[in-house]
């Protein structure tokens, strides 16, 4: 297994016209505490802004948040936008992704079809996303981080 040791950059943001700021703030803190370089674009972020930031910072992951129910329309063409900026990053999306969230499996399929590598619901704890990203980027947790995980889980 290859272990990356260089600094790993993730770009975070709330897509579309959505102004929910609390979750993204906590996510920023969580990824920073886990050792990532975090570029938090904040709320009301466009696809272009995600792509620009990912390209500029050579990000390894782009994490998209949406809580106001319009994620599907906001994300249409997102992968194409990233490709146009030559961004090659893992992409996650999470939040309240559909207005009626009766069937999360369908929601997951919808967003996987849009090109996202992982799809999370609004109840997901930051630790889950961090753990998934470490697996996807083939990083091992340091001893210190394992200890922290034990305390906070």
């Amino acid at each position: 297994m290859v272990v990356h040791t260089m600094s790993r950059t993730v770009v975070l943001g709330v897509i579309g016209s959505d102004a929910h700021v609390v979750g993204i703030t906590i996510l920023e803190q969580a990824f920073a505490a886990a050792g990532f370089e975090v570029i938090n674009l904040g709320v009301q972020t466009s696809q272009e802004e995600f792509a620009d930031a990912a390209s500029e910072h050579d990000a390894e992951a782009v994490l998209v948040s949406s809580l106001y129910g319009h994620a599907e329309q906001d994300c249409r063409g997102f992968q194409e936008t990233l490709e146009a900026h030559e961004v090659d990053a893992v992409t996650y999306i999470g939040g309240n992704l559909a207005v009626g969230q009766d069937d999360f499996e369908r929601t997951r399929e919808t967003f996987q079809a849009l090109g996202f590598d992982r799809v999370f619901d609004a109840e997901t704890q930051p630790e889950e996303a961090i753990a998934a990203l470490k697996r996807d980027l083939q990083l091992t947790a340091t001893e210190q981080e394992r200890d922290r995980a034990t305390v906070t889980s």
Binding site: V22, I26, Q29, A30, A33, P126, R148, V151, T152
Partner: peptide, 14 residues
């Protein structure tokens, strides 16, 4: 709480 001060407290408090 037997834990370190961190963003977890913030998230839990929210």
């Amino acid at each position: 709480e037997g834990r370190q001060q961190s963003f977890r407290m913030v998230a839990d408090d929210v």
